[in-house]
Amino acid sequence: MIEIKNIDAGYSSKKILKNISCNIAKESFTGIIGKNAAGKSTLLKVLCGILKPFSGQVLINGHNVYTASKKFLSETIAFMPQNVDMNFPFTVKEFVMFGRYPYMNMFKMPSEKDYAAVDEILKFTGIETFSQRYVDELSGGEKQKVLIAQTIAQETDIMVFDEPASHLDIGSLADILHLLRLLNKKHGRTIVVTLHDLNAAGEFCDNLILMEDGNIRNSGNVEKVLNYKDIEEVYKTTVVVKTNPISGKPYIIPVSKDLQ
């Protein structure tokens, strides 16, 4: 259970999050949506203990994220930032192994257990076919999968992903979000993810948090948050909300201004 209590946060003097409070239940799948610069990534950084808020606190199972030890955090919450540097020619397998870092011994050498875990994750994420290729030579979609595999390798109860599906074609997008759903439904991980694509958010997440200018505009299950009124006001455009005939989840299409 993650409790976010009265968070004010931002960078140097600029305040981005304004008095945010919400709870994220254990083993839930939560999507955070909102316009650019609404504070989605900032909220994730505060949640993971990377960015210290000006005031307020984040409790994970009752432990304050900013006073908890790095060891506790690294074994409880894994984070995939939007920007991970991939400048060096690590093989995919080596790169995924870095996610095992919190479990390595004093000399930070991987054990048999770490190798076994990485092999399993390579299979789970479907990247074992290119496990010996260098990460700096992969395509965008492949890189994204490798980064997700690295985050999964940390084997934490809570996994947080910042835009895991940006710039991907619809097939890769569905692949990656399905993977996160499996982690949630089969392995009981708590998943928090920011998404730009409202339809992907509606289809794959169970709960949504809609952010606007550093505040939470609406939160709850997908059907509650994806109503045309809130979406139109936040995104300042006319939309139609329909129901996916197969999954029963809501989807959204914008309406062209000259056709209204």
């Binding site: 990377i50 919450i77 894994a78 080596e94």
Partner: peptide, 19 residues
């Protein structure tokens, strides 16, 4: 070696790996 590997990923990732 492995500490430096983790640092090459950037500050945010390294931090959540406990470094």
């Amino acid at each position: 070696g492995n500490i430096i590997n983790a640092i090459t990923l950037g500050g945010q990732k390294a931090s959540t790996l406990g470094i």
